[in-house]
Design a protein around this nucleic acid. Sequence first.
DNA 1: CGCCTTCTTGATGAGCATCAAGATCAGTGG
DNA 2: CCACTGATCTTGATGCTCATCAAGAAGGCG
Lengths: 216, 216
Amino acid sequence: MTTLNQAVDRHLPASMGMDFPEQRKLASSTTLELRAGQGIYREGQRAAAIYQVQSGAVRVYRLMQNGHRHILSFYGPNEWFGLQDGLFHDDFAEAICASQLRSFSISGLPTLPVNLLGIALNSLAYANSRQLMIVRQSALERVAVFVKEMADRRPGISEFELMMSRADIADYLGLTVESVARSFTKLRTSGIIRLHGRGQRYVRIVNPEALAALSM
Amino acid sequence: MTTLNQAVDRHLPASMGMDFPEQRKLASSTTLELRAGQGIYREGQRAAAIYQVQSGAVRVYRLMQNGHRHILSFYGPNEWFGLQDGLFHDDFAEAICASQLRSFSISGLPTLPVNLLGIALNSLAYANSRQLMIVRQSALERVAVFVKEMADRRPGISEFELMMSRADIADYLGLTVESVARSFTKLRTSGIIRLHGRGQRYVRIVNPEALAALSM
DNA sequence: CGCCTTCTTGATGAGCATCAAGATCAGTGG
DNA sequence: CCACTGATCTTGATGCTCATCAAGAAGGCG
């Protein structure tokens, strides 16, 4: 963990760099209120709880030896995260925007209202799918997959706001910010989506069929 | 599953194309003897058991819509595989070489001699690590990781045989056969490994430090 | 020996990273 | 109200890495 903190400093705004609350003994269920960018847990910390998003959004990532950040997953309302192999976290979790979480102490296991194995297997299937996508899809296809993934979380709503920056998306898809921007532009100019609002973060899906075809 | 069989035919020798035994009701523990290339389960089949390798080696892969094969993992002696989210397999498992497996019926759950959650979390951590590697490591680094991974399974033995073909390795690392061959050559000419034997599948690690440095 | 499979090597090109600069916008303070 | 600042996003130019295409080399097996 010698190089870790340097890498962390590169990714966290200075004002938030050490903004990970010490994991303390939790009651079997606790509600957490988080500001944008606030840390939930970090690498090396003892894994003592699992979390469910109530509102807002969370990113979970790992840092590579070279300091590169790779986002493993984004989590939205009702989704679970934080379940860990071994005693200590090997990844980081942060709120992307103002969020509410519910945390469940693992030691309260018998009373947990969830099927841990189910969560784990679900995460595993998802991680495997992402492997396929990242390895063999083009930049444009990956961005299409991402947009579709975000859209599918809001069934029936054709326009929505992306909570995450282009940099987050890039680190999630294994691309650079520039490639992500170019792919968004390509989706826009080919009439598949429309973009507007602060930082072009509002997406309207104009041609869902074409989007689905790309993200296959 | 319309395009699936075409894709399968592309990857399985014709003589083995349909060589997946129907999954039948298993006693709580059964030993399986498999020839090289023989299927263990396939996509769409009901997931009814988990498996432990006794001897030999297994590859587990998924097929993409475009027919591309991506190998999610290789399994060696004592390792577990086949645990599945949902009722049906979404991947394929095959013996790479003559192998012995032990299969455990899932319905015999209370008597299972293993911690399913542990296996699932372990697989999840592994899948996540592979995501990082595949996204941001160069071809040479990925092959170095692979060689080190294989070597680490045989502690204390500096020379070993790779059970899998270059094509398997390519589909595992997200590269082409040619790129894998070139990377092996580079490792050889830079004095990190030595290769010989049938199909250059015998590997001797000459410079473990350099290998480790590459596969970081 | 000839055929097939697997592995290697070479030449070329496509796609994305990288480097650089401009555009847009929110926030800040005169 | 407007200029200034910093963050985020976009666009352009260039080069590197790896995929692709093509062909040769090295076994294994009839």
